[in-house]
C-alpha cells in the first residue's frame, strides 16, 4: 500500500529515545540561599553529568550566602552571587542517586549592625563549597539504560538528601559580612515529587516539596564573638506545569522556621517566614537548560523578619557519553 522504506524508521526510534534523555529533567544543583528550583530532583539517566552556572542578584536584610538566613534589623544588603558546580548521577543499590559539588562566589555589600555596632562593608571571593548527596528511596528504580529513562515517570517519589558545606570559603573575622561562613553546616531533607496527570512533555504537572532540617556548627570567631544557630526547618514547595514541550513554569513557596541565632549568649528571634516566587524554565537544546526566576519574602514587615528578594538566572549544561556519541555519529 505504500513506500515500505517508510514502514519503520529504526534510526528515528533511537533518536527519539536519545533526544528524550535531557528533556526528562535537567540536572541542576542547588541555587542561591539554599533553595533549589522546581524540578531539581527529577531523575535522569545514570552516569549523566551536569555543570550549572547560576547567577543571583539578591537584596534584603540577611546574608544570602548563609542558609541560616539570620536577619539583621535595619540591614540593607545587596549581593551578586554565582554558583558553579558539577553533578553526576549514578545508580546505588539500584536506586537513582546523585552527587554534586557547588562552589559559591561573588560579592556582597551593605550596612549591617552586630552587637550594637554598625558596619558598612563589602566582601567578595569564593564561598564555602558544598557537597550534596541524594538517593531515591521511593519511586522508579535507577535509569541504567535508555528504555529505563523512557519509562521514567515519577509518580510519587521520595528521596533522601544530605548536604554538607566545608568552611573554607573567604572569611574575615573582623567583618560581619562574609562570603564564607567559618563554620560547618548542612542539611538533611526528603525531596518529594508528586506527579499530577500524564507524563508527557508539554503536559507534565507536578507538586514538589522539600522538607529539610538545616544544622549549623558554631562560628567561634564572628567579629570576635561566638555565633550559634539553632536547627532550622525549611520547606520548599513548587507547583510546576509544562507550558510547551520545552517551556515550563512554577509557583514557588518557601517556609523557614526556627534557626534562632545566638551571639555571645544573646538570642535573637526564631524565624517564621514565608516567601513566594515564580520560575520559568526552558530547554534550549538536548544539553542546555535555562531558568529565570524571582522570589521574595512576604511576611517581612517586622524588624526581625527575614526580608529578601532575588532574581535568578541559571544555565545548566548536561551531557552523557551516549548522547555525545550519537551526536558525533549523526554529524
Amino acid at each position: 500500500m505504500k513506500n515500505s522504506k517508510g514502514f519503520t524508521n529504526w534510526v528515528a526510534c533511537l533518536c527519539l529515545a536519545v533526544a528524550t534523555i535531557f528533556a526528562m529533567g535537567a540536572l541542576c544543583p542547588p541555587q542561591a540561599h539554599a533553595q533549589v528550583p522546581a524540578r531539581f530532583y527529577w531523575k535522569t539517566l545514570s552516569d549523566a553529568n551536569a555543570v550549572p552556572v547560576i547567577f543571583n542578584s539578591i537584596s534584603g536584610n540577611t546574608n544570602p550566602f548563609d542558609p541560616a538566613h539570620t536577619p539583621t534589623a535595619g540591614a540593607e544588603l545587596d549581593a551578586t552571587m554565582v554558583l558553579g558546580g558539577y553533578a553526576r548521577t549514578f545508580s546505588l543499590f539500584d536506586r537513582a542517586a546523585m552527587a554534586a559539588i557547588l562552589l559559591p562566589m561573588g560579592r556582597i555589600s551593605g550596612d549591617i549592625t552586630v552587637a550594637g555596632r554598625a558596619y558598612s562593608q563589602s566582601a567578595s571571593g569564593f564561598g564555602d563549597p558544598m557537597i550534596e548527596f541524594d538517593i531515591n528511596i521511593l519511586g522508579p528504580k535507577a535509569q541504567k539504560n535508555i528504555p529505563d529513562l523512557l519509562r521514567y515517570q515519577p509518580g510519587l517519589s521520595i528521596d533522601l538528601l544530605a548536604d554538607l558545606a566545608f568552611p573554607i570559603g573567604e572569611y574575615d573575622n573582623k567583618k560581619p559580612l562574609n562570603i564564607g561562613l567559618n563554620r560547618w553546616y548542612g542539611r538533611v531533607g526528603l525531596p518529594i515529587i508528586w506527579q499530577l496527570g500524564p507524563w508527557v512533555p508539554g503536559r507534565r504537572t507536578t507538586l514538589e516539596f522539600l522538607p529539610a532540617l538545616w544544622l549549623f556548627g558554631n562560628n567561634n570567631d564572628y567579629v570576635g564573638q561566638t555565633l550559634k544557630t539553632d536547627p532550622m526547618f525549611q520547606v520548599d514547595g513548587h507547583l510546576t506545569r509544562d507550558l510547551t514541550e520545552r517551556l515550563w513554569a512554577s509557583l514557588d513557596g518557601v517556609w523557614y522556621y526556627g534557626g534562632k541565632a545566638t551571639i555571645n549568649g544573646v538570642s535573637g528571634d526564631k524565624l517564621n517566614n514565608l516567601g513566594f516566587g515564580l520560575t520559568a524554565g526552558y530547554q534550549i537544546n538536548d544539553n542546555l537548560n535555562l531558568t529565570v526566576g524571582y522570589k521574595s519574602t512576604v511576611n517581612d514587615s517586622g524588624a526581625h523578619d527575614v526580608r529578601m528578594d532575588s532574581f535568578t538566572v541559571s544555565l545548566v549544561y548536561g551531557w552523557h557519553q551516549l548522547v555525545e556519541g550519537m551526536r558525533r555519529l549523526k554529524e
Binding site: S4, T8, C13, L14, L16, A17, I146, P147
Partner: peptide, 17 residues
C-alpha cells in the same frame, strides 16, 4: 526482508517498537 532481526537493534529502539 525489510524488517531487521531485532537482535541488531539498540535497546532503545526495541523499547520504542
Amino acid at each position: 526482508w525489510f524488517v531487521p532481526d531485532p537482535i541488531v537493534l539498540a535497546p532503545a529502539s526495541r523499547y520504542i517498537l
